[in-house]
Design a protein around this nucleic acid. Structure first.
Length: 114
RNA sequence: UGGGCUGGCCGGGCGACCGCGUUCCCCUCACGGGGGGACCGAGGAAGGUCCGGGCUCCACAGGGCAGGGUGAUGGUUAACAGCCAUCCGGGGCAACCCGCGGGACAGUGCCACAGAAAACAGACCGCCUCUCCCCACGGGGAGCGGCAAGGGUGAAACGGUGGUGCAAGAGACCACCAGUGCGCCGGGCGACCGGCGCAGCUAGGUAAACCCCACCCGGAGCAAGAUCGAGCAGUGUGUGACCGAGGGCGGCCCGCCCGAGCGCACGGGUAGAUCGCUCGAGGGGGCCGGCAACGGCUCCCCUAGAUGGAUGGUCGCCCCGCCUCACGGCGGACAGAACCCGGCCUACAGGCCAGCCCAUUCG
RNA sequence: GGGGGUGUGGCGCAGCUGGUAGCGCGUCUCGUUCGCAUCGAGAAGGCCAGGGGUUCGAGUCCCCUCACCUCCA
């Protein structure tokens, strides 16, 4: 689990980020990043829908994404404004390996942060 | 050796590094927190939510009707629609498997098509005695009656087969068989089974149709419930205050109790924290009772408690399967706790153990 | 954690108290037209989600399972 102040919890924040943030997609996932808010800690949330698979598959995808995202927290903290990140998993993420997920996340984040 | 039936069990192991959650300990601190260490950390189905119970609340006198559930017998249990044993019916050569398996003389309904007739007896074709008429002497027709053997329909036609009998026939009578009711004897706790005798000769099916009978069932659910904290704003309208609204009460009624507010529309506010939360009808070993389900005694063990929700990633050795001469490569099911427990059902790579049956070969 | 519902030709739907499964659109063939659309005539297409049971007989009644939709807290 991420530390409490890095977690994105309420559904309104999810909605705002997905609607108005910068977006970049890949085979296995879509990244939304919103930096409109003033200074605050980086917050990240994950969306893994039922289309991805059953509970075991969804949990595994969520855990992998969470650990991958942890690596990027310092660089996100360096940006101006409060970074709110939402990572949405696509059905292809169910069969992707940990390395493939990491590559997709890296590519999307770098595109969204520039 | 081949085929099959039943029951039980496991469901990868060891280790290294980087991370996560609860609890505990230590250090630090600007009291918001930060850092380090130790233990423990998903399942046989955690799943579906089909049943049952614990627990919590509803300030729970009670009674009747309605409603729902169960449905062979005996046992087991906290309880069950589960389980065990047995009985009956059906299937299989057998081991064994399957069955919502009470009542159709309490009443009502339904049984399409076909068929004369579908539930209470009757008679379409038909068979027969007698009377009359016609006659081409083979027979034909009409009528009063008797009969239900034969015909065909159907899932099902009022016992079956053979005989006696008769004008023709018929349980009208006889023998055997099937089946019903009653009585007696024997076995079993019982469902029921076996035997003997008598009666009457014969009774359709359907209650997973309404229903009747016996037994059982108060409602809601851990978002239950308890505590702390934050925040807001009312307005309109209807109805009522001993001629009593509304509530306990969940479908209705009687009855008892509380009782001054309550319903509708629009508008406004909150959705934080702690407890409940894991030691329990708990798990394992041994002994005893019981055919068994299960129960008793004793010893040992403590084994997840998250709250956007903790188990992930990388690698080595071993194990199993597939490919390959080999080196080596690929793969290892179904599936993730959310108050707890007992069952049922469903999903599942592969493997292990035990007992039994049939066929065949040899002795 | 509770409740309700749906599953029937390729698609959207009927099928009430059990008795030979229908309708519209679509598909195919023929006709009409110079040709197409329209129109007219005809035809094919269904083990009623799956399994088991009750009954002489089940889409319908009963039980179990699967998938999906939906409501309340």
């Amino acid at each position: 689990m991420l530390p409490a102040h890095h977690r994105l919890v309420d559904s309104d924040a999810f909605r705002v980020t997905v609607r108005s943030g910068h977006r970049s997609g890949a085979q296995t996932l879509v990244v939304h990043l919103d930096r409109s808010e003033p200074d605050a800690p980086v917050r990240a949330g994950f969306v893994v829908s039922k289309a991805v698979g059953n509970a075991v598959v969804r949990n595994r995808v969520k855990r992998r994404l969470r650990h991958l995202t942890r690596e990027h927290l310092p660089s996100l903290q360096g940006l101006s404004g409060s970074a709110v990140l939402v990572v949405r998993a696509l059905p292809a993420s169910a069969t992707a390996s940990y390395a493939e997920l990491g590559a997709d996340l890296d590519r999307c984040l770098s595109r969204v942060m520039s």
